[in-house]
Amino acid sequence: MKKNNIITNFSVLLILLMPLMGWTQSEWMVSDTKQKEKNPVAFSDASVKDGKVQFMANCKSCHGDPGKDNGLPLVPKPTDLTLQAFLDLNTDGSIYHKMTDGQITMPSYKAILSDQQRWSIVNFLRSMDKNHKVAESVAASKPQKEAPKEEVAIAEAPYYLSLSVDAAKNEATTVFQGTLNGEKTAIEGAEIFIGIKRYFNNLPVMDAGATTNSQGIIKTSYPGDLLSGEDGKAELIAYVIDTETYGEITAHQEITLSPAHPNHFKDTRALWADRSHFPWWLMITYLSIVLIVWSVMAKVVINMLKIKSLGK
């Protein structure tokens, strides 16, 4: 029995993967003209940010977190797109067209993402490319602006993450601080996740890629109309995304959202309910009909007994 199952599972897998196996042998080639296509979207913070949002929403599910090489266990394995080898091998045009056309397990994103978005993803990937010249030039073009940031970045542990809410405005304020010369200092540019705890996972409420400002603050509004159980109670969570630098730092805050009006399925008197909840009108109708009919029968039986007694 079990064997059978394994065999079927395997055969399903095999059938699924058969076309892919042939493909893994050869590289996925994109035509020369397409390879040479230039990225029309200028490399900028905004574009990288947008690319990151799109990457997280569309690519991450298979390719995994950037740099962590934790994509889905498919065959062939989806490449970690931030691997230097990948970035070196593929031109902007080739990444863009792979996204656009798709191939076998890699779906086409032509209909799903706009041109701009696809190019932004390329920019996002390039932002992690050590050999990317544009990236360097962008970085070089604004050393002055970057300078103060570097200073702040010296802040060390212990880190403090605080979360406070303005319940009237449904606004949450997250402050991220580190320690510098024994004093609390704001940390700028740290990416913080802020979300509302849900049964399976947290529902993000911050803008994707939101970073702390120069005061170490992220302000974000959360949906006060979000249903949250019968009492509307919920928990707001904030944590620092870059755990490698800062470690696991989280903050929690109780908030009150909109109360849900749950269906009390178990207590509903309905035709579909269990037998202890069947509708009273049905009960009365049913019992009275049965009672009437059987009492007529009982009467007839009594009559028969009377006939019998008359016969004596």
Binding site: N303, M304, K306, I307, K308, L310, G311, K312
Partner: peptide, 15 residues
């Protein structure tokens, strides 16, 4: 049932 065919029995039977 000890049927005797009396009028009373018939009446009960019909009823």
């Amino acid at each position: 049932l000890g049927w005797m065919g009396t009028a009373e029995q018939y009446k009960l039977l019909h009823k």
